[in-house]
Design a protein around this nucleic acid. Sequence first.
DNA 1: TCAACGAATTAGAATAGTTCTAATGTGTAG
DNA 2: CTACACATTAGAACTATTCTAATTCGTTGA
Lengths: 141, 141
Amino acid sequence: MSKDRPYSALVHRLKTAGLRPTRQRLALAKLLFESPGGDDRHITAEQLHAEALGESVRVSLATVYNSLHQFTEAGLLREVVVEPGRSYFDTNVSDHHHFYFEDSGELQDIPGEHVQMESLPAAPAGTRVARVDVIIRLSGD
Amino acid sequence: MSKDRPYSALVHRLKTAGLRPTRQRLALAKLLFESPGGDDRHITAEQLHAEALGESVRVSLATVYNSLHQFTEAGLLREVVVEPGRSYFDTNVSDHHHFYFEDSGELQDIPGEHVQMESLPAAPAGTRVARVDVIIRLSGD
DNA sequence: TCAACGAATTAGAATAGTTCTAATGTGTAG
DNA sequence: CTACACATTAGAACTATTCTAATTCGTTGA
Ligand SMILES: [Mn+2]
Ligand SMILES: [Mn+2]
Ligand SMILES: [Zn+2]
Ligand SMILES: [Zn+2]
């Protein structure tokens, strides 16, 4: 279909999401989605910024935040809040839940089938369920 | 049993928790646990501080934070994080989950029986489950 | 190809929630 | 009552995040 460079799939992904494929967004998307384990990363804005700088991708922290939020709105990422002042962006947008290791601050996926709710209560009138977050908090032994 | 003033039950509650019943802790505990609906309040530190000042209880914000954390450690409160930079303290420490109204920022209890997990995955070796948080995020219509 | 324009990026300031510091005050055991 | 550990406090500090307004870039269509 396309004879483009390695970025071609990402370019398409961003365009489809209504986002211009800028140098910064492409580089961040590459780090997010095409690293080893890219379909299950849990990363903070500061971590991604550091990672970019480490790869000599020049991008500001403000742009990292902007991009992460835009990717989230576009459904490419999912935001998971675990502590006040600590939120992760998750490259796995399928239906799943999380272990949170309180000691190390790490998040780990739990496949969706392993936690099932029976009888989710109905959303109150005038609202719809935007998301259901299940976080199993773990502490050391 | 006791012929003490209205604070007597609270004094006992704090002492049992290993906390000295100081003027500030008593006043905050009274606001938290003896308001109408005191077994189901979801309040932030700043809200509680404002409430205290409104009742002419002189207490610093630092003490409000200290007390909320101490109460939480003692099992009198439970902390619920809903957004980066927004955490609530919940006077309902029984097993239950929450609706979060994204528009208004309010939290509402869902009785424990109304959400049941089947087959919670086992905690990874070397860890124990400290808590399971279920937050159903609602957005307007 | 390129001008024009709206969109994106940026540095740095600003904000908000929370925690820290170190000086002062208070509850309680003896 | 005294002494001392514990608690409170004002304000500074800190951290994650958002904002601002100046600059740069991507796209489109002539
Ligand atoms: Mn956000
Ligand atoms: Mn806390
Ligand atoms: Zn995940
Ligand atoms: Zn609750």
